[in-house]
Structures are given as C-alpha cells and as structure tokens.
Nucleic acid binder design. Structure first.
Lengths: 214, 214
DNA sequence: TATTTATGTTGTCGGCGAAAACATTGTGCG
DNA sequence: CGCACAATGTTTTCGCCGACAACATAAATA
C-alpha cells in the first residue's frame, strides 16, 4: 500500500502527490469561506484541511496569508471593473453612465459585502506591496475616470479637473456602499432601503453636473 | 517575602494585588497600540504584559477582545461627535455648518486613521451587540441630522426627506474620508491632497443645496 | 469580625501563522 | 534512456494568541 490516504479512503482513486491546481482551489475555497465567515476569520490551515492537503502546502503558492488575501482582493477589483464597465457601456450620456455605473458599483458591494470589505477595509496589511492588486485597483478606477473625461469634454459635467471629478464621484458611491453594507442606512420611511440608496446616489451625483453660470 | 514580583524587582515599592484602574489603562494602552500597529494586531496578552498584569486579567473587564475593541470604537464615536458638533456650532448657515462639520469629520479620520477604520471597518464582529457602541454611533449621526433638519426648514437645502439628506451627506464625507485614509487620493495636479479633498467635499455637498425650481 | 463580591493569578487547551528539514513528482538536458 | 534539478507537498516544530476553569487576594458590607 503505497498511499495512506488511499487506504483510509478505501478507494483506489489515484490521489496524486501533487494536487495540480492548488493555487486556484485555494482561491476558490478562500472566497467561499470569506463570504461565509468574513475576512479575518479565514485560516490557511482550515483551507488546507478542507482541500485535503497539508497545512503548509499553501505557502508554496502564497508567501503568507496576506498575499492570498491580496490575490483575492485583486480578483474582486477585476470583477468590479467588469460590472461597472458593463453598466457604463449600456448608455451614451455621461450622466446616465455615471449614475448606472455607480449603481452597479453599489450593487456589487451589496452582493459581495465581505469581499468588498476585504478590498477596501484594513484587513490586508500592505496593499501597495502587491503589484497585481495595485494594477487591478487602478484599472477599476479607470472606468469612472473615463466617464468623467467624457462628461467634461461633452460639457455635461462641471468644468473642473477630471481627476477631481472622478475622485469625488468615487467617494460618493464608495461612501454609500460602505454605509449600506455596514447597515447604517436605516430607512425611516415607507420606501425601502434600495430606493433610499438610489435617491442618495442621485443627490450626490447632482453636484457633478454642469450648472448655469459655470 | 510575601510578594514575588517585589522580590524580583528588588524594590519595596508596594505593588498592590489589585491594579485599581485596569480597565481605563487597558483602553489607553489599546488605543496607543491601535495607532501604532493597526486594529487587528492588538493582542490582549501583549496589553496585559505591557501593563504588568497577568494575561487573563483583562477578561475581568471585557468579555472578550471584541468587547474591548467595541469600547474603543465607542470612545471614538464620542470624540467624533465632539469635533463635528464644535465645527457646526461655529456657524449659523446650514450650508456652512455642513461643510465645516464635514471637514472636521474628514480631519478626524485623517488624524486617527486606525481608530476610524476600527469604527467603520469590519474588525469588530457584531457591533450591534454593544449598546454603548450603538448609542455613541447614533449620537454622532445626530449632529449631521440636526444640520439637515435646520437646512431644510430654513429652505437652504433641497426639500426632501431629512433623513435621506443626512444619510447622503454622511455618505459623502465618509467616502472621502475612507478613500483618503486608504491612500486612494492620488493628486495629479500641483495643489496638494488637502485642497483636493476640500474641492471634492464641495462638489459633493453641492448636490444637497436647494436649486431654482425645487 | 465574618461573609460576600470584585479583581487578579496560575495552569491549561486548542488553534493559528510561519519556518526548517525532508519527500515526491515532473521536466529538461546529456 | 537516465540523471540532475526545480516545483510542489509533508512532517515537525516554535512561539503566539484567545479563552476557559480553578484558585488567591483584596475590598466592601453587614
């Protein structure tokens, strides 16, 4: 009997010494565990156990726990970029693009709260140490930057520095998303939280539109 | 020799069995450690060691680590309420109050980034389990709610639900504060980050002001 | 003074992140 | 074909942490 695990399992399914896809499976399981229990509760050992591999195997693919979280966050940024870009592409008017892209952003945060917290929260120690993460982050920001550029050049947005407008817009949607996730949006009126979020978004973005006398 | 610590220290300074102020000193040292190394790196054992008390003594004053963090966050909310209220009290015009209070809010976050992350980040497990924390949080929110109420009643703000306006304003300043703390405000122009923050704040809050035709 | 309550200590358990030393597999080069 | 080497996974171990149970001491109170 050359393989103990085989014997214990009682099957002859050949369990290779090398997993072959450990890195990806680690990311998958980590994402699942993240959604269940939150970011800081993730344990490399638990992941390894779940996958059925030794507790130090993950260190062959990630320098440490932080690096795994960074890779996870980078995936998140790429997905965030995708959904916001899609929403923007569905419209031509920059105002519409901004509003719908922002809405998609907030919806992403709502659909993946733990991932979103991981991406923007203080869980990852030194985010700037991970080029993949930085690159994914600025790519995601590029979406809103492009909208701002278009809005200013078409004269729809207030005529200020494009980077400033993009940052302001980003702040708004990020603020709404964060507070919503954290349950800070207590709706007092009959209309639900969701419509309140939309109204809040509209109020916020209104400050960006060009006004008479600009 | 009734006291080992006394013997080891070689002094007769009476080291009382009871510390007498352990709870407060724990909070103090925890705050200091928070500012140095961030929220999740805080260790009850390290705190106890630093204070010179056994590693389980903290559990006499806090049910667990989470409870200590919650108490720390509650302190933060009270301080945040203080600075924003002070900034608001220095003006009469609701627009000015909103702007300056928001600026004070952002400044607080900038001055106490780790504490701010603790207050709003995902570090504290079940915030709603701590009445002190919830109370401090809603008291802090009350500041901005009062400004919104005044602004609407005086006809300076757009005529919408007061709670909605307050939440929108809160989202804006929170978004700016969060992104600034996380180093996401990369200023591309000659003017520094700080003026960019102020401009961003103004753009955001502009959406709240009453407009012709409202 | 005697009892109860608040506070601090010792000892211990299980879990975790991480490193060192070792084992196995696949790969490319002679 | 065969062998060295790199990639990947394992075993073992260390130190740290949060948390609990049992015990010790001081303070308050009756």
């Amino acid at each position: 009997m050359s393989n103990l695990r085989e014997a214990v399992a009682g099957v002859d399914a050949h369990q290779p010494y090398h997993h072959g896809n450990l890195r990806n499976e680690l990311l998958d399981k980590a994402l699942a565990q993240l959604k269940q229990v939150g970011p800081d509760k993730i344990s490399l050992r638990a992941l390894a156990r779940e996958i059925g591999v030794s507790q130090t195997a993950p260190y062959r693919h990630f320098a440490d726990k932080n690096a795994l979280l960074a890779a996870l966050a980078a995936q998140g940024y790429r997905e965030l970029q995708r959904v916001t870009q899609e929403a923007a592409d569905a419209h031509n008017d920059p105002s519409q693009q901004l509003c719908h892209s922002g809405n998609a952003y907030i919806q992403f945060a709502r659909d993946n709260p733990e991932l979103y917290k991981l991406m923007f929260g203080p869980v990852i120690a030194c985010p700037m140490d991970y080029p993949e993460l930085a690159e994914a982050g600025s790519s995601a920001f590029q979406v809103i930057l492009n909208i701002a550029t278009k809005g200013v050049s078409e004269g729809v947005f207030t005529d200020r520095d494009v980077s400033l407008i993009a940052h302001a817009a980003w702040s708004m949607v990020h603020g709404i998303a964060s507070l919503w996730i954290d349950g800070m949006y207590k709706c007092t009126e009959s209309s639900g939280e969701k419509s309140m979020i939309l109204d809040s978004l509209k109020i916020s973005l209104y400050g960006i539109l060009k006004r008479d006398g600009d």
